[in-house]
Structure formats: structure tokens, C-alpha cells
Design a protein around this nucleic acid. Structure first.
Lengths: 206, 206
DNA sequence: ATCTGGTTAGACTGTTCGGTTAAACCATAC
DNA sequence: GTATGGTTTAACCGAACAGTCTAACCAGAT
């Protein structure tokens, strides 16, 4: 986590740093993104940066946490009250909201995925652990609840299912990102339906 | 492609170089694998290496081509004669053969995937282009034939389907790799069935 | 014995990486 | 005016990277 001082910075500067970092991480991934480049683009000196952040992972963690909060923040991730009937429609609603945000800030999508190829060591501890935990826990709850309701298959290890769901999601998002120019409200709506359909095919009981 | 001299090397040395490189690329991915480390592990000097290979991509290309040939070489990739009935069983047979090779040389699996995160620029041209072309063409033919037979959905862009299939395949293989110790002939057979089932779910017409 | 040329070793180059440090800057307090 | 201390700068560091270069090696020909 960044030093508390970071919060005392002017909102413009703070946002400029985080946004620059976010775009870089989204475009190049955590490992491949260059600290030097980010700081140069953000118009901040190296010393200043390390005055606020412990290291690269710290900056990444702050960036992800910042944007992930508004990205996943008010989504009805609470599947506890869903029924067998409402399970898929609820998921569809989640994707609809996600994809509507996609239209405004497409690069946030890349950011979420940027940590994928990061070494497990880096991910397991430090500031990245929190958001990684959050993400996997959400999926974990989703699948577990789906199983309780009998709408998610029980014949494959949960671990494998999670990995498959993430792969499908990431691939679809990446494809969507590549077709960025052609997207509008209607296409994004069908994209949400398409995504849920894919998950349904994958996860439905045998 | 490596210099022709490379073929004049003793088979032992040639194989030792390629195998060392393959394991490194499989373990760390193309970008993250260290040339210095590979050469040190292979017991070959830097000068000697660059006497046979133009650069890192060249070594990678040679490595992938070498192992991909025996990996995909004699598989019945010819789906031209398949029927609607035999389509999925044929695919199952392909996976059975693949996974039986998995038992012998698990690291070859990682090798095939190692190029994934490689920059598109590197992949598009140079020695890697050939194998990339081969791989996508195979999938292209598969999906196209499946559509002709009416066993593969027609409502999604082929480009997206290919990406999804690769993602599913890669994820499943990675999972299999992680469970390496627990695998035997029986589990690998069910793994093939599981994989085909996943593809069937994904690709079946609506 | 000497020469030749394919082969090899490994020191070296230039670049980029994440990260450190000493000095300077500058608003505030005295 | 001057001292203080939070902030900033840019030079600098060591490590790692892919790739180059020169000198040496050494089998076979002369």
C-alpha cells in the first residue's frame, strides 16, 4: 500500500499518476510495463514516486485497488439470495453493468487482466494479494452458490472451473477490446448475453 | 531458422541444446526465459550459440518447430473425411494421442503455450510465423469443417471461436500440468474426454 | 612443421530494468 | 534572516538482458 502521504497529494496529480500507471499496466501487463516510462509519462520524478510508493508492486496495487473499487464496487456480487431461476439472469445483469462501464473506460478492462501472467510469488503476498483474493473469492462464491442451486455442474474440480471461467472471460474481454471501435450500447448488450451464454454452456450440469 | 551448420552437429549435442531450450521456454515463456541461462544449462558457450542461431527468436523457432513436428506430426489432423457422427469422436482420438504424449514429455505442452504472451510483432514474422500459422490453420479447418457438418455453431465469429478454443485448451493443459504427479493412463484418458466435452459444450450449435 | 578455416570460449558492449541517494527546493515557523 | 522539514530532482547503482567480438583452439590438408 502507498504511504499515507499519497492521499495528501492534489487530486489531479494523484489521478494523473494512477491513470498513467493504469493505462501502462493495462497495455503491457504488470511485468512488461516500465516504471521509468510510467513516471516519465506521468511527469513525475523517480524519487518522488518512491517517496509515495514502496516499489513497483505497490504502485500496481494502488492502481488496481483504486480502479477495481469503482469497477466492482456496487455490483450485486451477493449471490447469496439468488435462486435457481434468477442465477443466470443475475449474472447477466452483472455483465451488463460491467460492459456499460467498458464503454467509458475500456482500459480498465485490460488492467484487471494485467496481473494474470504475474508470478505467483508476487501475487501471493504484498498489496496484490488483496485484490487477487477478492477476485477469486467472488468466483468461488459464484460457483459454490451455483452448485447449491443445482445450476452449476459438480463433476469437475472447482479449481479447474474457476480457471476455465477466468480464461473464457479474459479471452472474450480481449476480443471485445480488439473490436473496440465497433461497439455501442446494443452490441455491448449482446456481448453480455453472449458471455453469459458461454458461461452457461461451460458450467451447466452434465 | 538456424544456420544449416546446426544440422551437422552431433545428434546428442543438438538434442541437448533443443531440449534445454524447450524446457526453459516452457517453464518461463519466451520473453522471460533467459538466453544466458539456457546456454549455461546446455553447456554451450555464447559464441557457439550465436554461431548456429541468429538470435533468441531463432532458437525459439527451431525449438518449437522441432518438437511440434513430432507432437502434431502424425495426428489425424485431416478432418476432411469426418462426418457429423464421427466429428467429435475423431477429435477425442486426437486428444487421446496428444495426452498420451503428455505422459512422456509433459514439458512439450508448456512449450506450445510459451509463445502465447509473445508480442504479436515477433509472432507475425520470422521463424515463429510458420508454426503459428500452422496452429491457427488447423483450428480454422476444424471449425470450418464442423460448421459444414452442422456440428459447430454458426452464430459467433470464427475468430472469436478460435480464441476461445485456444484459451480453453491452454487452461486445461495448464491445469493438467499442475496435477502432473497424479496422472496415469486412466486419468489422462478421462482428461481427453473432459476436454472434448468442454469443446463440445462451447462449440455445439445453439 | 605449418597453415587453414570451421568452431568455440568468454569477456565485453550497450541498453533497460527497478531501486537508492545526496543535494536542492521551498513554504512555513521563528 | 534563518532554520526546519516535507517534497522533489536527477544522477547514480547493480543486476540482467540480448547480442558482438577477438582470440584461441584444433582437426585436416599441405
Amino acid at each position: 500500500m502507498p504511504r499515507p502521504r499519497f492521499d495528501n497529494l492534489s487530486p489531479e496529480k494523484r489521478e494523473r499518476i494512477l491513470e498513467t500507471a493504469a493505462k501502462a499496466f493495462a497495455a503491457d501487463g504488470y511485468e512488461h510495463a516500465s516504471m521509468n516510462q510510467i513516471l516519465a509519462d506521468a511527469g513525475i520524478s523517480k524519487g518522488a514516486a518512491y517517496y509515495y510508493f514502496d516499489n513497483k508492486a505497490d504502485l500496481y496495487g494502488a492502481t488496481v485497488n483504486h480502479y477495481l473499487q469503482e469497477f466492482l464496487g456496487d455490483v450485486p456480487w451477493n449471490f447469496a439470495q439468488t435462486t435457481a431461476v434468477s442465477f443466470w439472469p443475475t449474472l447477466l445483469q452483472v455483465y451488463r453493468e460491467q460492459f456499460s462501464q467498458f464503454a467509458e473506460r475500456p482500459w480498465v478492462f485490460g488492467l484487471v487482466k494485467s496481473g494474470g501472467p504475474v508470478a505467483a510469488e508476487v501475487l501471493a503476498e504484498g498489496p496484490l494479494a488483496e485484490m487477487w483474493q477478492t477476485l477469486t473469492t467472488v468466483l468461488d462464491d459464484l460457483i459454490r452458490r451455483g452448485r447449491e442451486l443445482g445450476v452449476v455442474r459438480d463433476d469437475l474440480p472447482e479449481e479447474l472451473l474457476i480457471a476455465l471461467v477466468m480464461a473464457l472471460d479474459e479471452t472474450h474481454d480481449r476480443w471485445l477490446l480488439a473490436q473496440l471501435e465497433d461497439q455501442n450500447a446494443a452490441t455491448l448488450d449482446t456481448a453480455a448475453e453472449r458471455m453469459v451464454n458461454l458461461l452457461q454452456r461451460l458450467l451447466a450440469p452434465a
